[in-house]
Design a protein around this nucleic acid. Sequence first.
RNA 1: GGCGUUAUAGCUCAGUUGGUUAGAGCGAACGACUCAUAAUCGUUAGGUCGGUGGUUCAAGUCCACCUAACGCCA
Length: 573
Amino acid sequence: MARHLITSAIPYINGIKHLGNLIGSQLPADLFARYLRARGHEVLFLCATDEHGTPAELAAAKAGKPVAEYCAEMHAVQARIAEGFRLSFDHFGRSSSPQNHALTQHFAGRLADAGLIGEVSEKQVYSIADGRFLPDRYIEGTCPNCGYDKARGDQCENCTKQLDPTDLIDARSAVSGSTDLEVRETKHLYLRQSELKDELDAWIDSKTEWPILTTSIAKKWLHDGDGLRDRGITRDLDWGIPVQRGTQPWPGMEGKVFYVWFDAPIEYIACASEWAEANGLTDAEWQRWWRTDKGAEDVRYTQFMGKDNVPFHTLSFPATLIGSGENWKMVDHLKSFNYLNYDGGQFSTSQGRGVFMDQALELLPADYWRWWLLSHAPESSDSEFTWEIFQSSVNKDLADVLGNFVSRITKFCRSKFGEEVPQGGSYGEIEINLIDDLSERVDRYARHMEKMEVRKSAQELRAIWACGNEYLQTVAPWTTFKTNPERAAMQTRLGLNLAHLYAVLSEPYLPDTTDRVLASLNVEKTSWPEDIAEFLQRLSSGHSFQTPEVLFAKITDEQREDWQHKFSGTRNP
RNA sequence: GGCGUUAUAGCUCAGUUGGUUAGAGCGAACGACUCAUAAUCGUUAGGUCGGUGGUUCAAGUCCACCUAACGCCA
């Protein structure tokens, strides 16, 4: 038994996430967490909403609500949808929590004490009508290069030219449309992460098991051009964590907040604290997960994220932890994912393109999505969602292979022996071979899971399901029954036990299906099948069961076409 | 312009440190079975591994150059 800390990249608060976001971090993290729990390990699985920054403010303004209220509502929405997908977070926190305020300020203080915070004066556009500074991307105007009239202050979307806000002709605020703008001097704090470059470099070199995708991105940021650049950690905004040096005020920083990228990863830690509070636990209880001087030295920490998040997790956040000079737990394994594309293009939150989490659950139960997404996870490269692939994969794997197996064995038993496990007969060579084969396969399945090889473990799981159909096809109990009912009883008993085995093995992928099958078979959730031969005797003669309803309905061509059409455009938020 | 990732059967993807006839699932064809959600099981066809050149006794697997897609940065 080991202790595993698992975090998923925290989704941004402004709206419901799409399937690409889901498979990029939360879902594979959940798979891993469920697997490790099933193996009897102690797991703390954390996720949260990332709530600060300008996009949240603007989304709230658009919704006509105070930003705090908006975030609270959206957090509840995301929590409910996560529950719908059976994401088994031990806690789903909020980066706006008091714990994260305190910790973020604490880290800033420690970094400042260590000489790792610099102050920089810069010029930024201030909107007098809005009464605030505007981030570059919230300034619009006419592009001096191509004449496009909705160019943003950082870049023209039309001609892709990189811009400075002062380049824009007739610049205006994207918030209010006001053209009453001026450039003002403002002071910001910078994290001098360049000072930690060598330490980070050595640390990353020690992570030989990390995927190439991860290390190559990190290395690029470390070595490209002038090397790792210092980054601003404060902003002139209202919504965020007020800049403080620990618990003390920070002279000259009044009215400023920490930049969202700085406080968001700290929420991983704060979330553990929120978890402890929510469960009536002491600080020591969460610190034993996060402080290597307070009991976390034996914790194995795994982070899940999309590739766009890699720099923050390999450089900026580690720089924060190392720079604090305290004994914080650093990530051991970092699993990053590529993008899932939607029907030839990208999923897009801002454009409302693709299938969103709430919509998906309206169409089909969570297990359908979990299975497809996980078995097609974009691990080695970007992968693609199309309705055709989704339909054929779900129908074939879930309905025909797994669902039909459970259906045929329970119905056969009911018709010949009634709804209880039949007695009599003993194994022959075929059964011995089957058990050997299954033992090997389960072993392989587990090894893939340990290494977080999501697609490969799904492939192996499917092969394990197929073994059941193959077995029934080979021994044909419906034929055996005519001449040797006792032998048919043994074959049927084994078949029912296979259904039990499959339910337990499939739990990380298909939690609801597991519950349904176990309920039909009248068995409690049990531990992982360490010994396959022993496990396949658990349902013994006389044990009663109920024949389950169809586990997975097939997706019809009409449904597919209907959905294809319905989701071909963009979503109106 | 720089850098990175990817390029393997019709489709979606595996191929560990270079080593005998390049694998899986889907789809296709054929056959078997009839317990089951017209489901299942088996067999077969099918790729010289984006292109060119090189290193090596031996390369999909290493090197160089080229092409294409995607991404990041400037």
